[in-house]
Structures are given as structure tokens and as C-alpha cells.
């Protein structure tokens, strides 16, 4: 997958999910029927441009409702996205992931691919999912903890809304200052580290990571073509070795390994059917 092509898809997905252009000028959010449905990526429903609902916000809202009912609808949608695409959503459809990719292109003296403690820090996102999205909102009703104290996508929405609405601007206080600090930390870290929010914090990425090994869209390494040169692992921004684990939970399926393989040994597949030689039937190639 060509990186330019992926950038185009990411830009198109972000634009499509935030096509309520009028909202950016008026400070009014979209209130149409589109908000019945959750979008696949992290896109705050209070973003002036948002046409759909945020899956994480909707999940927390359902979990923190006074009269708890199992969130069949939101979990069903998230499960559908996960089972169909896995973390391909992070790599191609998430607007916040796209923003981080753009920031990583900003020149900096040093780009960190991995560092000591990197692997351990990646478990934080699972804790975020469990504690901030599920347990705390369920325990303390009416408070979407992740949205309120962490989500930088919501902070961006707040900045855009308050820029157009002076009443909202006058209400910004301590929580906004904290969230703006989190956003700034994510922005500056994104210049040095590829997708720090996706790697360490995003509960939605953690949820989709659970499906990466079994999702319909997968990566496949052809054992007959692979010469173990390590070129794929070198180009991976998520520090995954696709040969060792082509569908690793950390893989966002950006396709850099597919285009970076000099032997064409890696490809996207959909519900892979392999023959005995370990190659893929061409009709099943995605």
C-alpha cells in the first residue's frame, strides 16, 4: 500500500466523518439522524463537523446511565468494526490517528522508534479501556471519565467550539486546562514518536487490538517469498515484526511493511484461505 494512497484515504475518511463544515463557523454541532450511528474511529461527537457519534463516548454514556442496560447497540457496532477490520481502522479511518501521522512528519532532530519501557507502556491503553471507560463510569454514574479527563479529541472539539462561541469560552476552567495539557503532550510527543496516543493511551485501539488476530482483513506473510531480511520490521512505526507476528495486536495495518517488502511477501488478505504450500489463493487477495 502506497503511503500517499493511505494519506488520501485517511484525509477522505476524516473529511467524511466531519463534513458538517457549517458547524466550524457557527459553533453549532450537527443534530441529524447520522448521530444514531457510531463512527469507527476516535471522533468526538461534539466536534462541530462530526456527522456521527463517538463509539467511546457512546459506550461510556450507556455504561454510566442511571438505569444500567447492557449496551448491545454500541458494543455490537464496535465488535462489528473490530471483527471486520481490526486495527486497520486505526491505520486508515481514525481522524485522530491521521492527525498524529501528520505531526510525525514534522521534522525533528530525533525520531524515536522504540525505547526502554516502550512495551510495558503499551498496556496502559488496556487499563484505560477497563478502568476509565468501563469500571469508573459504571461505578460513578453520569461521568464519562475518559472523555472528561483524558480524551484529546474532545479537547480539540472544545477549542473549535469555543473559538466560535463566546459563551462556551467563558465557561472554560480547570478541567479544560488539564485536558489542553494532555492534548499538548500528545501533539509534541507525536512529533518525536509515531502515534503515541494510539500506542499507549487509546482505549478504542485497545478494543480493536483484541480482534486483530481474527478480523476478516488480515496481513499475511508468504513463507515461500520471505527471506527474513527484516526490511518490514525496520519500516514499521509501531515497532512490530510482521514476519514473527503478522497480526500482532499492536499492528495498525498501515501497510508500510507491505510496500516496504522488497520481495512482495506481505499482503492484505480478507478471510484468508491458504493452500498447503503456504501461499494464498489469488481470488482471496484483498
Amino acid at each position: 500500500m502506497d503511503n500517499k494512497k493511505r494519506t488520501f484515504i485517511q484525509a477522505a475518511a476524516a473529511a467524511l466523518q466531519n463534513a458538517n463544515v457549517k458547524g466550524f463557523f457557527t459553533g453549532q454541532i450537527y443534530t441529524g439522524a447520522g448521530k444514531n450511528v457510531c463512527v469507527p474511529g476516535l471522533n468526538c461527537y461534539s466536534c462541530p463537523g462530526a456527522l456521527g457519534a463517538c463509539p467511546l463516548g457512546s459506550l461510556q454514556n450507556a455504561v454510566s446511565a442511571w438505569k444500567f442496560r447492557f449496551p448491545y447497540y454500541v458494543l455490537g457496532l464496535m465488535m462489528f468494526f473490530g471483527a471486520a477490520f481490526g486495527r486497520l481502522i486505526c491505520g486508515f479511518l481514525c481522524p485522530f490517528g491521521f492527525l498524529q501521522d501528520l505531526l510525525f512528519r514534522v521534522p525533528s532532530p530525533k525520531k524515536l522508534r522504540t525505547f526502554r519501557g516502550d512495551r510495558q507502556l503499551r498496556y496502559i491503553k488496556y487499563a484505560m479501556l477497563l478502568i476509565m471507560v468501563l469500571i469508573l463510569p459504571f461505578t460513578y454514574k453520569f461521568t464519562p471519565f475518559f472523555c472528561k479527563y483524558v480524551c484529546p479529541s474532545g479537547t480539540l472539539s472544545g477549542i473549535m467550539l469555543s473559538a466560535a462561541d463566546s459563551r462556551l469560552r467563558s465557561l472554560l476552567g480547570g478541567i479544560f486546562t488539564w485536558k489542553a495539557t494532555v492534548l499538548m503532550a500528545v501533539v509534541f510527543t507525536s512529533i518525536v514518536i509515531a502515534r503515541p496516543f494510539c500506542k499507549y493511551i487509546c482505549p478504542l485501539g485497545a478494543f480493536y487490538a483484541l480482534f486483530n488476530k481474527v478480523s476478516a482483513v488480515r496481513l499475511h506473510v508468504d513463507g515461500n517469498k520471505c527471506v527474513n531480511c527484516g526490511a518490514c520490521a525496520k519500516v514499521c512505526d509501531m515497532a512490530v515484526n510482521p514476519v514473527a507476528a503478522p497480526n500482532h495486536p499492536e499492528c495498525i495495518r498501515c501497510g508500510k511493511c507491505v510496500s516496504g517488502c522488497p520481495h512482495g511477501a506481505i499482503c492484505f488478505t480478507c478471510l484468508t484461505v491458504r493452500n498447503h504450500a503456504g501461499t494464498i489463493d489469488s481470488k482471496h487477495k484483498a
Binding site: 450511528v37 463517538c54 442496560r69
Partner: peptide
Amino acid sequence: AMKQNHQVLAKAVRICLECIGIG
């Protein structure tokens, strides 16, 4: 069937004060 999509809509069409940092 349980109209949970209406619950999603009802939340999404109002500005989420927690999300934008007002609390």
C-alpha cells in the same frame, strides 16, 4: 429493537460538556 440507538442519538446531538473540557 430496544431503541438504544436513540440513546446514542440523544447524547450525540447535545454538546458534551465533559468531552470539551467544561465538565
